[in-house]
C-alpha cells in the first residue's frame, strides 16, 4: 500500500464526513509531511507538519490563518469518536483512562475531556472534546548511523537514548528493534530474540495484539503493561536476548532494568532529558548510572529537525563515538 493509500484508508476514513473531502484534497507533499492533526471542538482544525507547526485546514487547503479554517463542531467530535472506536465507545473505557487509543496502522489518538473520578483515580472521560491524532510512520534505516556504535564484539551494548520529547526516540528504538531482530550481517550481528515492553503502545503500536509497525521477526511485545511488571514478565516468559523499552523514569523502572541486566539481557531504553547528566539525575536512572551499567548513551535533539543525532558516548569513560547529523535527514524529512 502506498503512503497516499494509507493516508486515505487509515486517516481520512476515520474523519467526520464533512472533513473527509478537505483531507482528501490535500496535496501529496503535504500529506507526506503531516505528523499531527489536532481537533478541538469549536476551534479550527490544526495540522502539524514535520518541524513546522500551526497550519490550519481551510476549504482551499492548509492556511496559516486560523480565521479562514474549518471549525471542528461538537457533532464532528462525536462522529470522530464513533469512527475511532468503530461505533463502540464502551470498548474504549481502558483507553479513556489511559488517554489514548491506537488505530490500525499504528496511528495514535490522544484525547482530553471531563474526567470522571472515583476513589481509585480517573474512571473514564466524558464530553471528550480535544483530540490529537499522531500519524505513525515507519522510517526503516533510521538507526543505521547509530547501530555500529551499539554493537561491541557481537553483542548489543546496554544503551540509553536520551532526548527531550518529540526528538525521535521511539522511532529510533523501533528501527533498532527491527534491525537487531532481523540481524545485521554487515556488523557481524545475527538475528536476536527481542522483547519490547511497550507500556504506551508506541514502539510497536499493537492493534488487537498485532504490531502495526515492522519490529522484526524475532520480536515479542508486552503491550500496555506497566513497564516494571512488563520487564519481569518478558524476562520470565520470553527469554529475550535484547530488551527494548521506552521512557524509563519511575522509581520502580530502575530495579526492573537492573534485573534484566543481571539476567544477561542487553537493554536498550529511552529517557527524557537534554543530556546524559540530566537523565542520570532522575531517580530511576541514578542506580544504573552509579553502577556503570549503561555502556552507550545516544543523545538526540531537534536542532536540525526531529531526530538530530547529537552524540553517542560511553558514559563510563566519557568517550565520544561520533557526530552524525545525517540522522536528522533520515529521521523526519
Amino acid at each position: 500500500m502506498t503512503g497516499q493509500d494509507r493516508f486515505e484508508q487509515e486517516i481520512v476514513a476515520v474523519m467526520p464526513p464533512r472533513l473527509r473531502p478537505l483531507f482528501s484534497a490535500l496535496p501529496a507533499e503535504v500529506r507526506e509531511r503531516v505528523t499531527e492533526i489536532r481537533l478541538r471542538v469549536s476551534r479550527p482544525v490544526m495540522i502539524v507538519l514535520a518541524g513546522d507547526d500551526h497550519w490550519f485546514l481551510g476549504p482551499k487547503g492548509i492556511t496559516r490563518d486560523p480565521a479562514g479554517a474549518f471549525t471542528f463542531g461538537a457533532d464532528e467530535g462525536a462522529q470522530f469518536l464513533q469512527f475511532i472506536s468503530r461505533s463502540s465507545v464502551y470498548a474504549l473505557e481502558e483507553e479513556f483512562r489511559q488517554g489514548y487509543v491506537t488505530l490500525p496502522g499504528g496511528h495514535r489518538v490522544g484525547f482530553c475531556g471531563e474526567a470522571v473520578v472515583d476513589g481509585q483515580g480517573v474512571r473514564t472521560l466524558k464530553h471528550v472534546a480535544h483530540f490529537n491524532l499522531r500519524i505513525a510512520r515507519e522510517l526503516p534505516g533510521v538507526a543505521d548511523p547509530v547501530l555500529p556504535y551499539l554493537i561491541s564484539r557481537g553483542r548489543v551494548c546496554h544503551t540509553l537514548v536520551v532526548s527531550p520529547p518529540g526528538c525521535g526516540k521511539t522511532t529510533l528504538l523501533r528501527d533498532l528493534a527491527r534491525q537487531i531482530s532481523r540481524g545485521v550481517p554487515a556488523l557481524g550481528l545475527g538475528g536476536l530474540n527481542v522483547a519490547i515492553v511497550d507500556e504506551r503502545s508506541e514502539i510497536a503500536a499493537c492493534h488487537r495484539g498485532v504490531p502495526q509497525h515492522d519490529v522484526g521477526p524475532r520480536t515479542d511485545i508486552s503491550d500496555r503493561c506497566p513497564k516494571a511488571a512488563g520487564i519481569f514478565h518478558v524476562l520470565r516468559a520470553m527469554s529475550p536476548q535484547v530488551l527494548i523499552t521506552d521512557e524509563i523514569g519511575r522509581p520502580e523502572d530502575g530495579p526492573a532494568i537492573m534485573e534484566a541486566l543481571n539476567a544477561g539481557v542487553s537493554v536498550i531504553a529511552s529517557a527524557h532529558g537534554a543530556s546524559w547528566a540530566e537523565a542520570a539525575s532522575r531517580p530511576a536512572l541514578k542506580e544504573l548510572a552509579g553502577a556503570g551499567a549503561i555502556e552507550r548513551v545516544v543523545v538526540l535533539s531537534r536542532r536540525r529537525g526531529p531526530g538530530t543525532l547529537e552524540r553517542v558516548t560511553d558514559p563510563r569513560s566519557g568517550r565520544h563515538f561520533g557526530n552524525k547529523p545525517s540522522l536528522a535527514a533520515v529521521c523526519m524529512s
Binding site: 464513533q82 472506536s85 464502551y90
Partner: peptide, 10 residues
Amino acid sequence: YLGQTGAADQ
C-alpha cells in the same frame, strides 16, 4: 445511543 456511551449506559 447504540455504541455511543460507556458500557453501563449501553
